[in-house]
Design a binder for these strands. Structure first.
Lengths: 231, 231
DNA sequence: CGGAGTGAAGTT
DNA sequence: AACTTCACTCCG
């Protein structure tokens, strides 16, 4: 709800608090809280703040999100990070002799590039480079791309959006061949699918909010909604 | 301490299991178990996994922590008791999204009717009639209905489909008023949203299947799999 | 803004 | 009390 820096009474004079609402993505609607020291230094978390203030201020009861002291909120003493005798304490012996190795192996490079889009307009993309590589696209992996419209994603120079992933057919195991089928890169499919999921996710949260606002929470329930209950 | 992803025989091919030891905090030494679908999606609990796999796999006897089937562990149907408490007491409305459950039926009376659809045909866009109905629709609950086209859903005799739920706006708390806004029944929104979720769900599974068939599951992983281990 | 890592409420 | 599930923090 907050959008600008405000004084924070729980902290020494001169400290400001700011709350920024996230606008998109899975966490749309959630917010981030920041603090600013009198000199303008920005703090993004309680540990960071605590580190800076040192012993001069006890943040034990300080609630970072609200910016207020919460007497109820006692600090729990954390176990120190001991990676030493953990495996000994109980349970199974540690057979795993893990020697870290680096297997920088992304099988495909980065065939898909997300292009930040203005809320409502088209963006030019160049995925070509990523895709130039000789076809690694399995011929059997196909998808119907019917609704091709606005573009904020492109592949191989071709704008691709609103590709109707939902027309993917699961008929034959060996592959997805859709009539007007067109071969697409697996990574692209994943990307588009993820976008859809995001949208659904957001829609769901919007709906929740709306129902709450209208006091219709109960209306949404699929159960016996009338079980006489006296106040 | 296990730290690497391993195949999980109890699940369909391509699924991986990972166990991660907590290294700090109060719960240091405890471990978390994660599963990864063939496309790389991460699962953090049995309910989440179950929701995703739907009816295709019976997780009744599946022990999430060990990753094995435990015959002894008879399934005690504890299907969603939690949502009851939550929605009634204080939380958000229960837009219960669980897939395995067939609850397409009567959220309200029967405001929504599913109709088998032709893959592609157009429908005349007149929602008005549906909207003139005696108002149970809260004036604040609105949604932009832009892309109204093919119809495989009807409401009160009026074909409704592809209503763009995703244009729901979350700007003001009091309600969702979209410019070209048109009031819709909450139950309808819920229904449509659920359909979208289902489609995404199906699409993802199709994709997984296809990728597996092509032996490209790993190629699909977009995350930095830069960390590995020695043998 | 994402997501691994942790806290803590809810379950058994 | 211990475990499971999920929300949240914190930092890249």
């Amino acid at each position: 709800m907050e959008r600008k820096k405000a004084d924070c009474p729980a902290l020494p004079p001169g400290w400001k608090k700011e709350e920024v609402i996230r606008k998109s993505g899975m966490s749309a609607g959630k917010s981030d809280v920041y603090y600013y020291s009198p000199t303008g230094k920005k703090f993004r978390s309680k540990p960071q703040l605590s580190r800076y203030l040192g012993n001069s201020v006890d943040l034990g009861c300080f609630d970072f999100r609200t910016g207020k002291m919460m007497p109820s909120k006692m600090q729990k003493n954390k176990q120190r990070l001991r990676s030493d005798n953990l495996s000994l304490s109980k349970g199974k012996p540690d057979l795993n002799t893990a020697l870290p190795i680096r297997q920088t192996a992304s099988i495909f490079k980065q065939p898909v590039t997300k292009v930040v889009n203005h809320p409502n307009n088209k963006v030019k993309t160049d995925l070509q480079r990523a895709t130039e590589q000789p076809r690694q696209v399995p011929p059997s992996l196909r998808v119907c791309r019917s609704s091709l419209n606005d573009s904020d994603v492109s592949w191989d120079g071709v704008p691709l959006t609103n590709i109707n992933l939902f027309h993917i057919r699961r008929e034959e195991k060996p592959g997805l061949i859709d009539r007007p089928g067109q071969s697409l890169h697996p990574a692209l499919l994943l990307f588009l699918l993820r976008e859809q999921e995001l949208k659904v996710h957001q829609a769901r949260r919007s709906l929740e909010e709306a129902l709450m606002a209208d006091g219709l929470a109960r209306a949404a329930e699929s159960r016996r909604d009338t079980q006489g209950r006296a106040a």
